[in-house]
Computed example of a mutant assay.
Amino acid sequence: MKIVFAVDGSAYTRHMLGYVAAHPELVGGGHEFIAVHVTPEVPPHAARHLPKDVLNEYYAEEAEKVLHPVREFARMQGWTLRERHAVGHPGDKLADIVNEERPELLLMGSHGHGAIAGAVLGSVSARVLSRTKVPALLIR
């Protein structure tokens, strides 16, 4: 089974990974896990003043900050893990990757802002769920 972990480096990501590790009945063994991280894009008005190599290095460093602990956790669990990184709006880019990968399950940690905050701020989870047709498990 192919399972995508949406990871952002927050406590919610750590909680999601811990929950999955503590509940192997959710996913069983021998699956392909894909950790996906989306780094928000530097606003264009600021990005145009930065050399492209500096900007790319920033994006790579931000991704590594998030993906390194996930990689280590997966190694300790004995999980097969592949990593994907994109730059842009997290909800849109994550949905694009999920649609491309076509996993059997998407796992996301939910920040749990609630209905009003989610409507005002927008929710990555809600955006991804509205743009994909993959079974998803939100862990809060």
Score class of each variant (00 low, 15 high):
Lys2Trp: 06
Lys2Thr: 12
Val4Tyr: 10
Val4Trp: 11
Ala6Phe: 10
Asp8Val: 09
Tyr12Glu: 11
His15Ile: 00
His15Glu: 03
Met16Lys: 07
Gly18Phe: 03
Gly18Gln: 12
Tyr19Asp: 00
Tyr19Leu: 02
Ala21Trp: 07
His23Thr: 03
Pro24Phe: 02
Pro24Asn: 01
Val27Ser: 10
Val27Pro: 04
Gly29Ile: 04
His31Met: 08
Phe33Ser: 06
Ala35Pro: 04
Ala35Met: 07
Pro40Arg: 06
Glu41Asp: 13
Glu41Tyr: 12
Val42Ser: 05
Val42Gly: 05
Pro43Glu: 13
Pro43Thr: 09
Pro44His: 13
His45Pro: 01
Ala46Leu: 15
Ala47Met: 01
Ala47Gly: 01
Arg48Thr: 13
His49Gln: 05
Asp53Thr: 09
Tyr58Asn: 00
Tyr58Leu: 03
Ala60Ile: 00
Glu61Arg: 11
Glu61Met: 04
Glu61Pro: 00
Ala63Ile: 01
Glu64Thr: 09
Glu64Pro: 04
Lys65Ala: 10
Pro69Gly: 10
Pro69Tyr: 00
Pro69Ser: 08
Glu72Arg: 14
Glu72Ile: 12
Glu72Lys: 14
Glu72Phe: 00
Met76Leu: 13
Trp79His: 01
Leu81Met: 11
Leu81Lys: 02
Leu81Asp: 12
Glu83Gln: 15
Arg84Tyr: 13
His85Tyr: 09
Asp92Thr: 13
Lys93Cys: 05
Leu94Met: 15
Ala95Arg: 04
Ala95Leu: 03
Ala95Asp: 03
Asp96Gly: 06
Asp96Ser: 10
Val98Thr: 02
Glu101Lys: 00
Glu101Arg: 01
Glu104Cys: 01
Leu106Asp: 02
Leu106Gln: 01
Leu107Gly: 02
Leu107Tyr: 09
Leu107His: 05
Met108Cys: 04
Ser110Tyr: 08
Gly114Ala: 09
Ala117Thr: 11
Leu121His: 08
Leu121Met: 15
Leu121Gly: 05
Ser123Leu: 11
Ser125Cys: 14
Ser125Phe: 03
Ser125Val: 14
Ala126Met: 08
Arg127Ala: 08
Val128Ser: 02
Val128Thr: 04
Leu129Asp: 02
Ser130Phe: 04
Ser130Trp: 02
Arg131Phe: 00
Arg131Lys: 15
Arg131Asp: 06
Lys133Asn: 14
Val134Met: 10
Pro135Trp: 12
Leu138Tyr: 07
Arg140Lys: 15
Arg140His: 15
